[in-house]
Amino acid sequence: MTDAAHWTFVCHRDDIVPNTGVAAKVGGAQVAVFRVVAPDGSEDGPDNGIFAIDNFDVRAQANVLSRGLIGELSTETGPVLVVASPVYKNHLCLRSGRCLEDEAWSVKAWAVACGDDGMIMVRAS
């Protein structure tokens, strides 16, 4: 199988309201896909764009992470883009899936790409 076969189309960028997330079915898994836009409306640059992590919140044991609020928190290693779980408010890094409060609540990050046409693809693994 070629690598390309692993990529699953989930939706168009415009299907996601700026600075919110959606849940997508990728193979048998649930993935939370987020669209991050700067306050000035910019979608370019390394800190903006599309991010994907597990939709399953291991702390709450529920598929809810796509419904969390997106934010940016200062940490010892600099600012981190996060989503706050809507259930217990644990913060998960959008790039790595790492939980800021407790490693045990960390989740998986998924490879994601947005084409020039706005099509969002997640790589199944």
């Binding site: 309201v17 700026p18 600075n19 919110t20 709450a60 044991q61 529920a62 598929n63 809810v64 419904r67 969390g68 609020l69 997106i70 809507p86 259930v87």
Partner: peptide, 18 residues
């Protein structure tokens, strides 16, 4: 939309199982 808690976003109260 992007600044509302899930409760305000879906106009309902989230429970432990989502």
């Amino acid at each position: 939309a992007s600044v509302q808690d899930t409760n305000d976003y879906f106009l309902a109260n989230i429970q432990k199982d989502g």
